[in-house]
Simulated scan of single mutants.
Amino acid sequence: MTVYHLVDDAGFGGVNRMLDHLAATIGNDEEKHDIVRIRRGQLSAPRLSDAKAVISHLSVCWRNMPLITALRARYAATPLIHVEHSYSERFVAAQVKNRDRFETLVAAAYALFDTVVAVSPQQGQWLGRKFVDPERLAIISPCVDLDDFFALPDPVKSGKTVIGALGRFDRQKGFDILIEGFVRSVRQDFELHFYGSGAQEQQLKALAGNDPRIVFHGYVEHPAAAMARCDMIAMPSRFEPYGLVALEAMAAGRPVIASSADGLAGHIENGAIAVGDNTPDGWARFLNAFDVHAGLGDSGRGRACARRAGDRFLDGWLALLQALSGQSNRLQMAA
């Protein structure tokens, strides 16, 4: 039997790295995990043989509704699960202009799945209030292979403190907020290093101007290699259903300074440092007052938290798949 994971994200981002880790970790001779690449907007459902479950990591959008509907029709006797990687309460506040149209889309899509998986408790609470009955909702926070991050030595305070910012140069990530705040700060013992690329690159470089404390390194294929060059990590996201970079930073023993957007609030509960006011002025005030020695003092807590998160990720998926075995039998009998 095979568990099929359908994904329409072609980038080397968190979703694909999570899927690679999941397939490599829990797949076995009796149950394979296959990743199937889907073209966004395609109309027909793929033909999947011996499917124990079909798990969607697809974008819930109007272009994909014919595909999602076709999946439900073709696999009526197979558990159909959706993992919501994109939407969150802060996403709606920041990005959605027509709330009624958005809520109609999401409600219609989720109704076609047997189970919806939230990637953080914060996102799950929002989904449970708005879209999904509790009995159809599971919460499994993502994880990737963290071995390279655990292998990094703790940062050592010597010379200037390097604050790293990793990820897509997209409005979601709030890097523009961070740069404006950093430029306004008076700290000459800090440097701000960016690792990534994206549509906002020229805008971000323009905001940085000629500030010699801000460095752009471009895209780095291996996040642990970038993390090794940083003393701490900043996450000024406007919305963030989970925030995988925070987990990687904790595994690397790097303090995380973050907004409280969506899933980042959960990382703050687990030891990340709350910036408070996620505005340029808020970041400037935070940086001006930040005690570096205190901030770099407790890497052990973050690493322990990351290990527990890895265990919960695997336990969560194993429990869900075990529950689906019984559900699959019931659906097949009903069919």
Results as ranks from 00 to 15, higher is better:
residue 42 Q to C: 06
residue 323 A to S: 14
residue 48 L to R: 02
residue 230 C to R: 04
residue 124 G to R: 09
residue 311 D to R: 15
residue 171 R to Q: 13
residue 327 Q to F: 03
residue 224 A to W: 07
residue 219 Y to L: 13
residue 335 A to R: 09
residue 50 D to V: 00
residue 256 V to W: 04
residue 36 V to P: 05
residue 135 E to D: 15
residue 170 D to L: 06
residue 189 D to R: 13
residue 219 Y to E: 14
residue 123 Q to M: 11
residue 259 S to I: 02
residue 39 R to P: 00
residue 18 M to N: 14
residue 269 E to K: 14
residue 130 K to T: 09
residue 108 A to K: 12
residue 299 S to K: 04
residue 157 K to A: 14
residue 90 R to D: 15
residue 187 R to S: 07
residue 221 E to H: 12
residue 22 L to V: 12
residue 117 V to P: 04
residue 15 V to G: 01
residue 183 V to I: 12
residue 247 L to S: 12
residue 138 A to M: 10
residue 190 F to A: 03
residue 102 F to K: 07
residue 170 D to Y: 03
residue 167 G to T: 12
residue 89 E to A: 14
residue 129 R to I: 09
residue 21 H to K: 04
residue 164 G to F: 04
residue 285 R to I: 01
residue 28 N to C: 04
residue 4 Y to T: 02
residue 293 H to M: 05
residue 244 L to R: 05
residue 206 A to I: 03
residue 84 E to A: 13
residue 56 S to T: 00
residue 149 F to T: 01
residue 264 L to Q: 11
residue 130 K to M: 12
residue 147 D to W: 05
residue 181 G to T: 04
residue 160 K to S: 12
residue 286 F to W: 14
residue 279 T to W: 06
residue 148 D to E: 15
residue 124 G to M: 10
residue 307 R to Y: 02
residue 222 H to Q: 13
residue 34 D to L: 08
residue 278 N to D: 12
residue 323 A to N: 13
residue 292 V to K: 08
residue 140 I to C: 07
residue 71 L to R: 00
residue 89 E to W: 02
residue 208 A to F: 02
residue 332 Q to S: 04
residue 16 N to R: 15
residue 226 A to R: 08
residue 180 E to I: 01
residue 100 D to Q: 15
residue 129 R to E: 15
residue 56 S to G: 00
residue 150 F to L: 02
